[in-house]
């Protein structure tokens, strides 16, 4: 596998607010981009300022799930949508105007995530197709694979919180 330094040497992602654990999101791990959603969802017509258009399904509860993560974690996009993940999804997911940092990677993202996290705790939430290579037994953080027909709304976020922050008091 190529060195993660290779990518991050030529691209400098913005920093996230210090102190909080990271939640690294793949776009396919959040909304439903392919096929029919297996949960109630709203069809959205997305556009990155008229340059490209894609229809996608946003399962009910996705906005709230993203907001929940944003309250506890520093959010980082890690996807092939690059800078457009935030730009295109801001409206439908109610994201802040100031974009979250992004890692422009599509497959085998772990090395870039670890390098970016630089020792901070992290959870990486994505759909399973991104793993071409097998994941190591000790990834150094929490990896959550979602059903791409349900997206983020199909997850129990309290389980993730517990895995990252430890059992609630």
């Amino acid at each position: 596998m190529p060195s993660p330094a290779a990518l991050l040497a030529k691209y400098t992602p913005a920093a996230v607010t210090a102190g909080r654990p990271l939640a690294v999101l793949g776009v396919d791990g959040v909304v439903v981009l392919e096929g029919e959603a297996r949960v109630p969802a709203r069809l959205e017509h997305l556009s990155a300022r008229g340059k490209w258009v894609r229809d996608l399904q946003v399962p009910d509860g996705t906005r709230e799930a993203v907001a929940h993560l944003a309250r506890r974690y520093g959010i980082v996009w890690a996807s092939e949508w690059g800078p457009n993940a935030h730009l295109a999804l801001a409206g439908v997911l109610g994201l802040p105007a100031a974009p979250w940092p992004y890692l422009p990677v599509q497959f085998n993202k772990l090395a870039a995530i670890r390098e970016y996290a630089a020792g901070r705790p992290w959870v990486w939430i994505d759909d399973p197709v991104v793993d071409l290579d097998p994941l190591p037994g000790e990834p150094g953080g929490v990896i959550v694979r979602v059903d791409p027909a349900r997206g983020l709304a199909g997850l129990d976020l309290s389980v993730i919180d517990e895995a990252v922050f430890g059992p609630a008091a």
């Binding site: 190529p2 290779a6 990155a48 490209w52 092939e80 949508w81 599509q106 197709v129």
Partner: peptide, 19 residues
């Protein structure tokens, strides 16, 4: 060297194909 690509707007179709 695909791992060197800095994917963005122009590459949406390429990324969908790879997926």
């Amino acid at each position: 060297l695909h791992s060197e690509d800095h994917l963005t707007t122009t590459d949406q179709g390429v990324a969908m194909l790879r997926r």
